[in-house]
Structure formats: structure tokens, C-alpha cells
């Protein structure tokens, strides 16, 4: 039996009369790359925000890394990393300053920061750019850096909200190499995406339609189940029934 790191029970979020997320139930295992798919407005970002503690669920319950999302938000925060769909580094700070700042607010010591930033800079090949402002980096590098900064404090789970928006396929592939590396080290990756090719990279995929989960399985199993050749077809088969527009 694999260790469960995220577990939700009838988790819902309502804004007035609108139900953004409707009683979702799922489990995510340790070290897994868990893909969260859905059209715009399907509720995937809202679901993720609840899990990160940015939004309080209207009803239901969930545990993250064994902690309750209502009571233990402080403990959860120490154990998760987050990369938002908006690009989330400080443009007018240098690469090194960004690393030190985000590491610093997670309470890493100066010694740890020094070691970790060295490793990180080596891994990303950013020696030349260490003291350059982040605003001068190309988008692909910013995103890789952003991800590396999000996992600097070695969280148990990292949440990625549409992390590869707007970058070319080659850079996207490189980005996924980083994700695999993190996953191999035992980190759980929770990622939302629009891209169906990215869905193929995930261990398991959860497809949301109109605030509910309409399918949850590995990519090969989903294709088999929907008699489809690609994830695209699976997604269209499910999304066709959606009532909420773009």
C-alpha cells in the first residue's frame, strides 16, 4: 500500500449560488505526478487553491501530508511548495536574491541557502546570470528557476498551477525533466494543465468537468476506457458534456 499524501472527501467550494467545486474525492500517493485537467472554469484552480490554503472550502474535508486543511494550515504550509500560473519571481531582484529571499522566508539558514543556491545554479546552468536581474532572463529560464525556487525548501508536495503556459515545446520538455527529477526524489507533484501532451507525462490524471471529477486514472487506462487514441480524444469526449462555457 502506497503512502497517501493528499486525500479529499466531498471537498466543495461555493461562491454564492455558484458551485465552483462540487464534492470532489480523490487520493494522491507519495512521489506521484498527479495531473489535474479541465477546461477553463472547470474548477481546477479553485480546487488547488483550497489544497494550498489560499481558499477555505465551503464543505467537505481534506488532509495534506497528513494535516487537516482547516486546522493545521501552518503545518501544511511548511510542507508544500507552490508555483502559480502567473509568473512568480521578483523581476527587479537578481537570480541569487530571489533564491535567497524565497529560501529565507521558508526559514532556511544562511549556510543552507549558500549550499542550495550553488547546487541550483549549477543544475540550471545559470552561472553567468547569478547577479543579473530576473527580468533579463528568457521566459523558459524564469520558469525553471521559479520551479527550482518553489522546491528549494524540499517540500513533501509541490503544487504547480499551469506552470508551462506560453513556452515552446522544447522548453516545456526540459521543464518536465525537472519535474521528473523532483518526483524521483520522492516529492509529490500536483500539476494543473491545459496541455494534453503534458497529461501524458503524468502518472495519473484527474479530469474535471463543471466542478466535478469525471475521470481519474492513468493515461493508458483512460485511453482504453474511452476507446481513444490520444488524451485529446479522451478530453473531448468528457468535455463535450460540459455546460459551463469558456
Amino acid at each position: 500500500m502506497r503512502e497517501i499524501v493528499i486525500k479529499t472527501e466531498n471537498l466543495s467550494k461555493r461562491f454564492g449560488t455558484f458551485t465552483a467545486v462540487n464534492e470532489i474525492n480523490f487520493e494522491v500517493y507519495k512521489g506521484e505526478i498527479f495531473g489535474f485537467l479541465g477546461a477553463n472554469g472547470a474548477g481546477k484552480t479553485t480546487a488547488m487553491r483550497m489544497l494550498c490554503g489560499l481558499s477555505t472550502p465551503s464543505s467537505g474535508s481534506a488532509t495534506i501530508a497528513g494535516f487537516d486543511i482547516f486546522r493545521d494550515t501552518d503545518k501544511i504550509k511548511k510542507n508544500i511548495g507552490y508555483m502559480s500560473q502567473k509568473f512568480s519571481l521578483y523581476e527587479n531582484l537578481t537570480v541569487l536574491e530571489n533564491i535567497h529571499f524565497f529560501g529565507g522566508i521558508y526559514g532556511l539558514s544562511n549556510q543552507q541557502l549558500k549550499e542550495k543556491s550553488e547546487v541550483l545554479v549549477n543544475k540550471l546552468g545559470l552561472y553567468q546570470e547569478v547577479n543579473k536581474l530576473v527580468s533579463s532572463l528568457p521566459l523558459g529560464w524564469k520558469q525553471k528557476l521559479s520551479f527550482s525556487v518553489a522546491i528549494l525548501h524540499e517540500p513533501k508536495i509541490v503544487f504547480l498551477d499551469e506552470p508551462t503556459g506560453g513556452v515552446d515545446p522544447v522548453t516545456r520538455r526540459q521543464f518536465w525533466d525537472l519535474i521528473y527529477e523532483a518526483s524521483d526524489s520522492g516529492m509529490t507533484i500536483f500539476v494543473t494543465t491545459h496541455y494534453m501532451d503534458e497529461a501524458e507525462y503524468c502518472n495519473r490524471i484527474c479530469i474535471m468537468v463543471d466542478g466535478s471529477i469525471s475521470a481519474l486514472d492513468s493515461a493508458p487506462n483512460l485511453k482504453l476506457k474511452f476507446k481513444a487514441n490520444s488524451m485529446d480524444e479522451v478530453f473531448y469526449a468528457l468535455a463535450r458534456g460540459a455546460k459551463r462555457g469558456e
Binding site: 490554503g53 501552518d74 504550509k77 502567473k86 519571481l89 526559514g107 503544487f159
Partner: peptide, 13 residues
């Protein structure tokens, strides 16, 4: 606006 606020709010800060 830049989205860094979310990152800060997710952090233990």
C-alpha cells in the same frame, strides 16, 4: 498583480 502574493501566502510567512 504579479502573482508573488500567492506564493507568499502559501509560504509559512
Amino acid at each position: 498583480e504579479t502573482g508573488t502574493m500567492e506564493v507568499l501566502l502559501v509560504s509559512p510567512f
